[in-house]
Design a protein around this nucleic acid. Structure first.
Length: 350
DNA sequence: GAAACGTGGAT
DNA sequence: TATCCAAGTTT
């Protein structure tokens, strides 16, 4: 027994009309404004920030970006280093690099393209984000599938195949239930439902507008879906970072490097280190000769490795690529969280 | 298709 | 404390 797609659409959109979250990038909440030129920019920016990232984490970054760069043209004109700094702490830094690239392409073209297929060509926009922007900003009937939709759909239709294999079946079902009108609201409704009621653990079926048509609920244990493949163990890594000071004209300065544009923490400013990565421990060697003194260690957990980073004070004269940064302004550098922790440790001992 | 790629909050 | 997980994309 499968509920008609019309019933699902009606129940979900009605629920959304009453319960939609009021989020900063919904401007105004729940209704696209096709003629507002700022609308696609806000939708795009929020969607990129929200990739693998919680609403709570995104909110302050979204506010800061909108304040600093109110339009896609403003962002396109920004220095990439400033954008990277502003993104610091949000993670997945290739998003920030692609954000600038994308903004410049869009500004050059005179605005965002309006179709899912064209949006998909822009840097940083994959299948999910292109569909989401097409549906939410441009009212196109695009099928939007994120982790929330996967969860809701796998329960609604009792799809027992484990992820990621189940993606094909899930997409087919999502395709079936996506309406021709209000596809953007439908997508956001699915995501709101997934984040507030149809949650990973302890789903609130008593409050769910789709409970009566949910096959997994009928089966008695919706929380077991979607089934996921077991995860690989996370390796332990060791590395060293080096804290190098000098007395500058306006006070103490710290030696910072900019990491290579690709790879871990790519494009971000950082303390010099011993070459650790998620794949291998660091060499333990300092990049410059000098007296070393261990200050302590910080722990940091990445998606695919856990790192213990020893912080070493080094009395050395650095050379090569890098810059002296005033200690007074160290908070403004925009260090990724790992190196912000290391800097905090070093500062606490001065 | 699998692996790389961050972070902070919840449990 | 350890693990899971969140509005995924790229290579």
């Amino acid at each position: 027994m499968t509920a008609s797609t019309k019933t699902i659409e009606h129940a979900l959109l009605h629920w959304y009309d009453v319960h939609a979250r009021d989020l900063p990038w919904r401007n105004p909440p729940r209704r696209a404004v096709p003629n507002d030129p700022a609308w696609p920019y806000r939708v795009w920016l929020s969607e990129v920030m929200l990739q693998q990232t919680t609403v709570a984490a995104v909110k302050p970054y979204f506010a800061k970006f909108i304040e600093t760069w109110p339009t896609v043209e403003a962002l396109a004109a920004a220095d990439e280093a400033d954008v990277m700094s502003a993104w610091a702490g949000l993670g997945y830094y290739s998003r920030a690099r692609n954000l600038v690239k994308c903004a410049r392409e869009v500004a050059t073209s005179g605005g965002f393209p309006k179709t899912e297929a064209e949006l998909r060509e822009l840097p940083g926009l994959g299948p999910y984000t292109a569909a989401a922007i097409a549906a939410i900003a441009f009212d196109e009937r695009a099928v939007v599938v994120d982790a929330n939709v996967e969860r809701v759909v796998s329960r609604l239709f009792n799809i027992e195949e484990p992820l990621p294999g189940a993606r094909k079946a899930i997409r087919a079902r999502a395709e079936e239930i996506t309406p021709a009108k209000r596809a953007g609201d439908f997508a956001q409704a699915m995501m709101d439902l997934g984040s507030s009621l149809c949650t990973t653990r302890d789903p609130k079926c008593l409050l769910c507008p789709l409970a009566g048509m949910c096959e997994a609920k009928a089966g008695g244990d919706p929380a077991r879906l979607p089934v996921k493949a077991p995860k690989k163990p996370k390796p332990e890594r060791k590395g060293r970072a080096f804290w190098i000071e000098r007395d500058g004209p306006d006070g103490t300065e710290i030696w910072l490097v900019t990491r290579p544009g690709t790879g871990m923490l790519g494009g971000m400013r950082a303390l010099p280190d011993d070459g650790w990565s998620a794949q291998a421990d660091g060499s333990g060697m300092a990049p410059f000769a000098g007296a070393a003194q261990t200050l302590g260690a910080v722990r940091h957990v990445f998606t695919h490795a856990s790192l213990t980073l020893e912080v070493v004070r080094l009395d050395a004269a650095p050379g090569g690529e890098g810059e002296w940064w005033p200690l007074q302004k160290i908070e403004d550098v925009g260090l990724p969280t790992l190196f912000a922790k290391a800097a905090r440790l070093a500062l606490a001992q001065r």
